[in-house]
């Protein structure tokens, strides 16, 4: 951009502010950064409204007598997340949106008081300018950021919905004491604990897969596994697998082809790191 052009930018911007015209439409609200806003618009989407969904759920304390899944807690927590996301989707549908991007679910276990868990889903409802993402049904939901959605659409895919799977695993006090004391006699690994955690995590991922198949997805991108510890009458671990189910779009991939770049400014992750600690030189006579 030449100097003259950018000088005009400030002048034109100030001219818009000096003579405020009242827009015909209500202003959009969004949960996007400026980078995300620019990319979302470039992907042919326009933000409509910041949408949210809330579910406060009370989960009872029941004594954990044996190690294994706490079905009541899994059900309560999964249902609360689902309700929060459905609440958000309903608000998006109410403003005529075609989808919600950047959906995240925040959990708070303290502010409402004892035993009350709050799940808040929030994201930005968007409308498709070209109509390519109009499904006729419910708006899509995706946990991908504005950058992610732009890249996904450019690659020729379209988001379908946020898919989740949960598993809450209780570890009885007796078991954990037995496992930990076994360490003194045997090896360093706690094999029972490894097995229980792996089983719980697998279960959460499998349940997410079931949801993805239910919406006939080609795959799930950006999967993350959240792990949280609770104390409900014992030690409990919550595993939540979360991702965006996607399908090939009807439209051909547009925009620039992806290119491999070597970044000059950001630190790239290394497989191995060599650190050299330099000790201060010591004087011999000291």
């Amino acid at each position: 951009m030449s100097g003259r052009d950018s000088a005009d930018l400030a002048v034109r911007a100030l001219r818009r502010l000096a003579a405020p015209i009242s827009p015909r439409r209500a202003p959009f609200t969004c949960d996007l950064s400026v980078d995300e806003l620019v990319l979302v618009e470039r992907a042919g989407l326009e933000p409509v409204k910041l949408v949210m969904g809330t579910c406060v759920v009370s989960v009872l304390r029941r004594p954990i007598s044996r190690t294994g899944e706490l079905r009541h807690a899994t059900n309560a927590i999964y249902r609360a997340r689902r309700l929060a996301v459905e609440d958000l989707r309903r608000e998006a549908a109410g403003v005529g949106a075609h989808g919600v991007v950047g959906v995240r679910v925040e959990v708070d276990e303290e502010r409402w008081g004892e035993d009350l868990h709050e799940f808040v889903a929030l994201g930005t409802a968007v409308r498709s300018r070209t109509g390519s993402l109009r499904t006729g049904g419910a708006p899509f939901t995706s946990h991908l950021s504005g950058q992610g959605v732009h890249a996904l659409l450019a690659a020729g895919y379209r988001p379908l919905s946020l898919v989740m799977g949960a598993a809450v695993w209780g570890v009885s006090r007796w078991d954990s004491a037995a496992w930990l004391s076994a360490r003194r006699r045997r090896r360093v690994e706690y094999p029972e604990m490894t097995r229980e955690i792996a089983t719980a995590r697998e279960l959460a991922i499998r349940r997410m897969g079931v949801e993805a198949r239910a919406v006939r997805a080609a795959g799930v991108v950006g999967m993350t596994i959240e792990q949280r510890s609770h104390t409900w009458g014992g030690d409990a671990m919550e595993f939540v697998a979360l991702g965006t189910a996607i399908r090939s779009g009807d439209v051909r991939p547009s925009g620039p082809r992806p290119r491999a770049v070597v970044s000059l400014d950001a630190a790239s992750p290394r497989a191995a790191e060599i650190r050299v600690d330099v000790e201060p030189l010591r004087r011999l006579d000291n």
Binding site: S22, P27, T29, L50
Partner: peptide
């Protein structure tokens, strides 16, 4: 935002 003649809100 509407009162200020804005078209939208970012960085909420």
């Amino acid at each position: 935002a509407r009162g200020a003649g804005a078209d939208g809100c970012v960085g909420s």
